[in-house]
């Protein structure tokens, strides 16, 4: 039982990271209908920028995260402007290929600048605490708490502010949004900024537990895709719930099934879902 609850806590940590990454992915998909294969590269860049800000510029962890969120958010905007915007009317094959090009470029870039080695990110929150008899590092509590806070803030932003509402409106109907005077260009850029920031935050939170290396985004992005298919492409609550479902299944699977193959669980889920429901779990039938 104790092991089980420990694993649930693990699942909550991992799930928080997944949810943050999946949120960014689902926002972009909802607005632009692009499966952004380069999203994992944003996550990876987030890890490196935070690490560099801490080790080279001597920033404290929290400030480094904020800097990283801003930097990677801007990188996302750049990506939208330079690549996805020019491709908005191209066949769907094109933006996928372009995204793969960006992904490999950023990875090579990271390797060029920071080297191929695995690096550890120091954290001031490495101490262990005991809560209700369960041992837990403060870092894990930090991950869960900040993820929840950010999700609430994001929710408030989307529901309560005008600009947030226009993101939702645009996700539902791009032309319609344009007609009612929403500046779709601005919304697209903002969405990419949010998406990049969320990826950077997720990476910065997870890195002290995992490690920082050029390929760190691969599995995460693939899993994020699984999550948004699980939760419905473009659905925000779906990304959150899906992220936690996957987090729990993985940490339980690693304990009770096989640690070696725990990464396959996500893909097995996906294969099963798409076999039964080819258009995703919560497919809206197209017109």
């Amino acid at each position: 039982m104790e092991l089980f609850i420990q694993q649930l806590l693990n699942g909550l940590t991992v799930g928080s990271v997944y949810s943050l990454v999946a949120l960014g992915l689902t926002l972009v998909y909802g607005i632009l209908h692009i499966p952004n294969f380069a999203h994992g590269a944003l996550y990876m860049m987030g890890g490196y920028v935070t690490l560099t800000a801490m080790t080279k510029l001597g920033m404290p962890y929290g400030l480094a995260i904020v800097a990283s969120m801003a930097a990677v958010g801007l990188l996302g905007v750049l990506m939208e402007r330079l690549v996805f915007y020019p491709l908005r009317n191209a066949p769907p094959l094109h933006d996928k290929i372009a995204a793969i090009g960006i992904l490999l470029f950023l990875e090579a870039f990271a390797q060029f600048v920071w080297g191929a080695d695995y690096q550890t990110m120091p954290t001031p929150y490495g101490d262990v605490v005991t809560v209700f008899g369960f041992t837990l590092t403060i870092q894990r509590i930090l991950i869960i708490a900040s993820a929840v806070i950010i999700m609430i803030l994001l929710y408030l932003f989307l529901k309560k502010t005008f600009i947030g509402a226009s993101i939702i409106a645009m996700a539902q109907n791009r032309e319609g949004a344009n007609l009612v005077g929403i500046n779709t260009n601005k919304v697209a850029m903002l969405t990419f900024f949010l998406s990049g920031s969320l990826a950077a935050l997720a990476a910065s939170l997870a890195s002290p537990i995992n490690l920082v290396f050029p390929g760190m985004g691969h599995l995460v992005i693939l899993k994020a895709f699984v999550i948004i298919i699980l939760g419905g492409m473009g659905s925000i609550p779906g990304a959150i719930v899906g992220g936690y479902i996957l987090g729990f299944s993985e940490s339980l699977g690693a304990t009770y099934v096989s640690n070696d193959y725990k990464d396959i669980i996500a893909f097995a889920i996906l294969v099963i879902i798409l076999t039964v429901k080819p258009n995703g779990l919560f497919a809206k039938e197209g017109r």
């Binding site: 691969h218 893909f267 097995a268 294969v271 076999t275 080819p278």
Partner: peptide
């Protein structure tokens, strides 16, 4: 048989995952 029932983006994501499963195995 499974993948082709999915459309466009789903197909790309699905095959990406199949490719990754093969790599992992």
């Amino acid at each position: 048989l499974v993948a082709l029932r999915t459309k466009e983006h789903f197909f790309a994501i699905y095959t990406l995952c199949v490719g990754y499963i093969i790599y992992l195995i």
